[in-house]
Write a protein that binds this DNA or RNA. Structure first.
Lengths: 224, 224
DNA sequence: CTTCACCGTCAAGGATGCGTTAAACCTTCT
DNA sequence: AGAAGGTTTAACGCATCCTTGACGGTGAAG
């Protein structure tokens, strides 16, 4: 999911962090000193950096400052020093958070989540395309041959459910439940009416749909 | 410059923070409990919130969660509790930072700077233009054919929300919540009245709007 | 071949939502 | 107190959308 660059000169801590982070679904790369850290951050920009201040080659705040010259990636600082001055220096150099050793792994993970939550706030625009039409889930728009296609609210909801499960089969109950509500599980009429509507607006050949497919007796399927 | 909302039930600490923060150039407003904090945050949105978890009326994490329902203002949590669980709960509820009492004022100020630095970072395009009118978000002005257009405060707020999300669909609830407040989610009348007003002032052909579009049953969309 | 189940299509009604206008209400300034 | 500008409320015509039912086609089973 998210890529984390861990910078620390203690191989044991590095290994422990790598294992823990990977167990929580992060991609992890590591560096043992400031130079390689900057290099790696440039070659494969991570989503967040965990940086130990006590590095062998460079001062920690110097690393942050250099990083900030060309990157705005969130930086979480680890340090054995509890002094107020150290914290202020690191934070003012451009760090986003600062925790002191020894620290709880729970807390580290929670702070990591907080940083990632904020930096990844502008949700990545989910756009799904086929040969004949394009669905922009973020902007809630559908276009065909450059032209915007007008969809009614119900049409959109139905298309959205299908597009969010590409290639997967969506059962009739699932569709009815998500679009009309759990109480409409028997009204398969709706599905036929609205599927016809969607195909007329999106499929070049209504009689032979290529992306909005029917699985008789079961449900429907969207193929990109 | 930046507005800080400080929430704490200890009047002494509140006073100390107010003085310190003001001495460093912040505008300070205060609240002694969660309810008034949420109210103040809504009426005069601050740039950052400093929140004590030990409030008399509401659980601290509940305050954060409610706040996050309609605001993404950075939240720095103060707490007397050093436990890892408390930190994780607060951070996962939506807090951005967490420091424990007693804390150094230097550190608090540094963390405050770090939060403000990041949250004030994304300065979206200050000026957005269409064929028929231009919106200057920074100067809070709208012009059409060189002439300034006079907008009432409510008209402006509504236009601003739409323009800040170009091409994206803004739901009715989103608009009502951001312009009138979260409690007005049902008053779609307002939207119709003010959208008509905006179109009369900005659209050449009111009957066929080209930039302020309606998505029936869902919301509105601004197209540059 | 007939029957049945299921799907796609169509059209008409009724319900909902939108745009528009105008008047009542509120605050602020003169 | 009166005036002016802004906000809220209510009402109406109109367009759009949802629902419903009927009809025909297709394929599998009897």
């Amino acid at each position: 999911m998210s890529a984390v660059l861990v910078v620390d000169d203690d191989p044991h801590l590095l290994r422990a962090l790598r294992i823990t982070l990977q167990a929580h679904g992060y991609e992890v790369s590591t560096a043992a000193d400031g130079r390689t850290a900057l290099l790696k951050a440039m070659q494969a920009p991570p989503s967040v950096v965990i940086l130990d201040l006590g590095l062998p080659d460079l001062d920690g705040t110097a690393v942050i400052r250099e990083l900030r010259g060309w990157s705005s990636v969130p930086v979480l600082v680890l340090s054995a020093r509890h002094g107020s001055d150290d914290k202020v220096q690191a934070l003012d150099a451009g760090a986003d958070d600062y925790i002191t050793k020894p620290f709880g792994l729970d807390e580290l993970l929670a702070r990591l989540r907080a940083l990632l939550r904020r930096s990844s706030e502008p949700e990545p625009e989910a756009v799904v395309s086929t040969e004949s039409f394009t669905v922009d889930l973020g902007k809630r728009r559908v276009s065909r041959e450059g032209q915007d296609v007008r969809l009614t609210p119900t049409e959109w909801k139905m298309l959205e459910v299908l597009v969010r499960n590409p290639e997967k089969l969506v059962t009739q109950q699932q569709l009815l439940s998500e679009v009309w509500g759990p109480a409409y599980a028997k009204e398969t009429n709706y599905l036929r009416v609205y599927m016809a509507q969607l195909r007329r607006k999106l499929e070049p050949d209504t009689a032979n749909p290529r992306h909005l497919l029917t699985e008789a007796g079961i449900g429907y399927r969207f193929m990109p």
